[in-house]
Design a protein around this nucleic acid. Structure first.
Length: 363
DNA sequence: CTCAGAATAT
DNA sequence: GATATTCTGA
């Protein structure tokens, strides 16, 4: 008698506990649902657990209170759209909240990798590994190199900032072959827009490190193309023949190069006036009067204007020495295009300059 | 739509 | 400061 009572009691307690568990689990599962694609297994496990508990208590109670036959499928259906809400959003719009989300996802992903699951990332990987660079005309000067050039200097400056994400990406990208990328933009811009599964949003590209060798090629290309203000990123990239190098990277580099090149020292107040005086037209090119060809000396102070045309000579010294631009440059750019009139003066000119050059090219 | 260049972001 | 990404205009 008593025994049966206590049994009953135990049983009730047990059932209560089960209910609690179930509740907790359900809660957990709701959370996981959001990352259902990244954590299919987790979801499955939790679901199973819930079911188990339910079975345990099912005998006594009719409570299908939690009703819902717990097939993960259903949940999938229900949270698909949610995912879509999260994934495709571009980072540009809302940063804070979203980012947190993203990080969660990433962390989570690590876990699941441990579990041995594979999903989208694999696809990404394969995408990265694609390398598409047709070997064009063979050039005497430069041979195509792989993107992880070790050529120049043995010392690759450590130039990754590695936060978890990046490391992760790097490991993937690096895994079996060092090459191939370029696609980042295409990936997201892509077709469906909201579809989601494959569109992993804005993982930042691994930083390209402009080693000396790379930079040398860059300069070479520049030289061949007639100087930094005539060369376009695309052309440069083609000339460089570096596997995996993207236009964007070149563009970015070129931008920096031009910046450094243009305005070595800014501090001198009266340069504006002086510049007009110091320059002279030579064969359609504006050159500093004093420092015609290679007079580096002038480069420094007075000629702050050593901007566009005259770039021929002095620029190198002005680049931050620690980086690529320090010494190596010296050999370069002695060419000023004959295509366009290169002028100098305030930065404001730059655009118009560019335009002119373009026009000149056309004709 | 692609490309370049400038402006921003990380 | 160096590189990446986004914004514009052509």
């Amino acid at each position: 008698m008593i025994k049966s009572l206590s049994n009953m009691k135990n049983y009730n307690e047990k059932r209560e506990k089960c209910c609690e568990y179930i509740e907790a689990l359900e809660e957990e599962r709701r959370k996981i649902n959001v990352f259902q694609r990244e954590l299919p297994l987790c979801l499955e496990l939790v679901t199973q657990a819930i079911e188990a508990y339910k079975k345990e208590i099912s005998g006594t109670t009719t409570d299908t209170l939690y009703g819902q036959p717990e097939c993960s499928e259903q949940t999938t259906g229900e949270c698909g759209p949610v995912l879509d809400l999260f994934l495709p959003i571009k980072q540009s719009s809302a940063s804070t909240d979203e980012e947190e989300e993203e990080e969660e996802v990433d962390d989570v992903e690590h876990e699941s990798h441990d579990t041995g699951i594979d999903f989208v990332d694999k696809n990404m990987k394969s995408e990265w590994l694609k390398s598409e660079r047709s070997q064009q005309e063979t050039q005497t000067l430069v041979e195509p190199i792989k993107e992880n050039d070790n050529g120049a200097g043995s010392h690759q400056p450590p130039c990754y900032e590695s936060n978890e994400k990046n490391d992760y990406i790097i490991s993937l990208a690096t895994t079996s072959s060092g090459s191939g990328r370029q696609k980042t933009k295409a990936e997201r811009g892509g077709s469906s827009g909201s579809g989601g599964s494959s569109s992993r949003r804005g993982q930042r590209k691994q930083r390209r490190c402009w080693s000396h060798e790379l930079h040398r090629r860059f300069l070479n290309a520049l030289k061949q193309l007639g100087g930094p203000h005539v060369a376009t990123p695309k052309q440069i990239r083609e000339l460089m023949k570096v596997d995996g190098l993207t236009n964007d990277e070149v563009k970015s580099h070129l931008q920096k190069y031009r910046l450094h090149t243009r305005r070595p020292s800014q501090t001198i107040p009266n340069n504006r006036d002086s510049q007009t005086q110091h320059f002279v037209v030579v064969g359609g090119i504006w050159v500093p009067q004093a420092s015609h060809s290679k007079a580096n000396a002038v480069a420094s102070r007075e000629t702050t204007t050593g901007i566009y045309g005259p770039m021929a000579s002095p620029l190198p010294s002005e680049w931050p020495s620690h980086s690529n631009f320090g010494g190596e440059i010296s050999e370069e750019i002695s060419i000023c295009s004959d295509k366009g009139i290169v002028r100098c003066s305030s930065p404001a000119m730059s655009s118009s300059t560019r335009t002119k050059t373009k026009d000149a090219k056309m004709s």
